[in-house]
Design a protein around this nucleic acid. Structure first.
Lengths: 142, 142
DNA sequence: TTTTAATGTAATTATATTAGTTACATTAAA
DNA sequence: TTTAATGTAACTAATATAATTACATTAAAA
């Protein structure tokens, strides 16, 4: 999972809050990054149908009330990412040794299991939930 | 989680299998990496009590049958890693805006939850389990 | 019809992380 | 005393990530 995920979530929470057409510049300012990066991520969310992209003068991004029901799992899938990814594989598939040739697949299975589990949890969290946490949080005595 | 994790798991499976003092060179060959990297990881496992480190001539690493019961969670903790880590934080703690100032903590909470969940799963898997998967796997018709 | 303000996207640069390499003091067996 | 290995640090290389810059495209507004 790259930082595009928190960026996308942040943007959706912000857009749900404003409810209006919001330019990448304003999003970038709130998120604390640059507009081009925001646009790159918003383009993906738009392609996945999670945000409206308005073009021309006065353009920007917008999303409606239905966004509150969007899950974080859906957001992550829109970015075509997985919670956990491991590019390096130990061992060598072509070795005689069962350990050297087998560890890669074994570990892949473990990552797969962890990823499925994480996705399940992310599917249970919505943009609306986070908005609540931010705006309606009861004061807690730490 | 960095690639030190699969490397460490691979090394422990290999050492459990050989049962003898095994030099970093041999481990590196089986894992397909270099001896210095292996030693760096093995030093951590040794410090955590997961492997014996023998010094001097004919030295190397060894671990006994008790290693079969070591969980992958314990391995990951020995490396002082977490399943999922995110260095980048969106927003700015010092802003008035509740979204900009709050998103960092909200997302940290989510990563924390995912990490606890992954650790729980990793605690349920042992080096012995993987050894079984590798050596005693029944032939399956895919 | 022209101007304007914004997106979509690519190319480039900068930064950070990760892996690999080299080197050598230390260790303890032979 | 020699030897073969670890522990560890310093350095280099490779990769991944983020930031920056630039500009064609789009559509509203003048």
């Amino acid at each position: 999972m790259t930082a595009e995920f928190p960026l996308a979530v942040h943007a959706l929470v912000y857009l749900l809050h404003t409810g209006r057409i919001t330019p990448s510049q304003e999003l970038a300012d709130n998120i604390c990054t640059n507009p081009a990066r925001v646009r790159k991520v918003m383009t993906k969310l738009h392609r996945a149908g999670l945000a409206e992209s308005v073009r021309g003068q006065g353009s920007g991004y917008r999303c409606g009330g239905e966004t509150a029901a969007v899950t974080l799992g859906t957001v992550l899938r829109s970015l075509e990412e997985e919670p956990l990814s491991m590019s390096w594989r130990s061992g060598d598939m072509d070795r005689e040794c069962l350990i050297s040739s087998g560890m890669g697949a074994i570990m892949d299975g473990i990552y797969g299991q962890l990823n499925r589990q994480c996705m399940e949890t992310l599917e249970s969290m919505t943009i609306g939930d986070l908005t609540h946490q931010i705006f309606d949080r009861k004061k807690e005595t730490t």
